[in-house]
Simulated scan of single mutants.
Amino acid sequence: MSSGLCLRVLRGSGSAPAASSGSWSRFLSRSGARRGLSGSNSGTMNVFNREMKKRQKNWAGSLQDGQQYDYLRDEVGSRVADRVYDIARTFPLALDLGGGKGHIAEHLSQEVVERLFLTDGSEETLKQRRKSEIPTRCVLADEEFLPFKENTFDLVVSSLSLHWINDLPGALKQIHQVLKPDGVFIGAMVGGETLYELRCSLQLAETEREGGFSPHVSPYTAVTDLGNLLGRAGFTMLTVDIDEVQVHYPGIIEVMTDLQGMGESNCAWNRRSLLHRDTILAAAAIYKEMYGSEDGSVPATFEILYMIGWKPHESQAKPAKRGSATASFGDLSKISQPTNSNKS
Results as ranks from 00 to 15, higher is better:
S2E: 11
L5E: 10
L5H: 11
V9N: 14
P17L: 03
A18S: 13
S20G: 05
S21V: 02
S21M: 06
G22R: 15
F27L: 14
R34N: 06
G36V: 05
S42N: 07
N46M: 15
K53M: 14
N58K: 10
A60L: 01
S62P: 00
Q64M: 04
Q67N: 13
Y69P: 10
E75F: 11
V80L: 12
A81W: 01
A88V: 07
T90I: 05
G98V: 03
K101E: 08
H103Q: 12
S109D: 12
V113N: 07
E114A: 10
S122A: 12
S122I: 01
E123L: 10
L126Y: 08
Q128G: 07
S132Y: 07
R137M: 12
L140Y: 07
D142C: 11
F145G: 06
N151V: 05
F153D: 03
L155E: 11
H163W: 01
H163Y: 01
N166V: 11
D167V: 05
P169R: 05
E193N: 13
T194I: 00
E197L: 06
C200S: 13
L202V: 01
E210Y: 00
P215S: 03
V217P: 00
P219Y: 00
Y220E: 00
A222W: 06
V223Q: 06
G231A: 12
T239R: 14
I242Q: 11
D243E: 14
D243H: 06
V247H: 11
I252K: 04
M256Q: 10
L259I: 07
G263P: 01
S265L: 06
R272M: 08
S273G: 09
I280M: 13
I280S: 08
I286L: 12
E289T: 08
V298K: 12
L305V: 00
M307Q: 02
K311M: 04
E314L: 11
Q316F: 05
A317E: 03
I335N: 07
Q337M: 14
N342A: 11
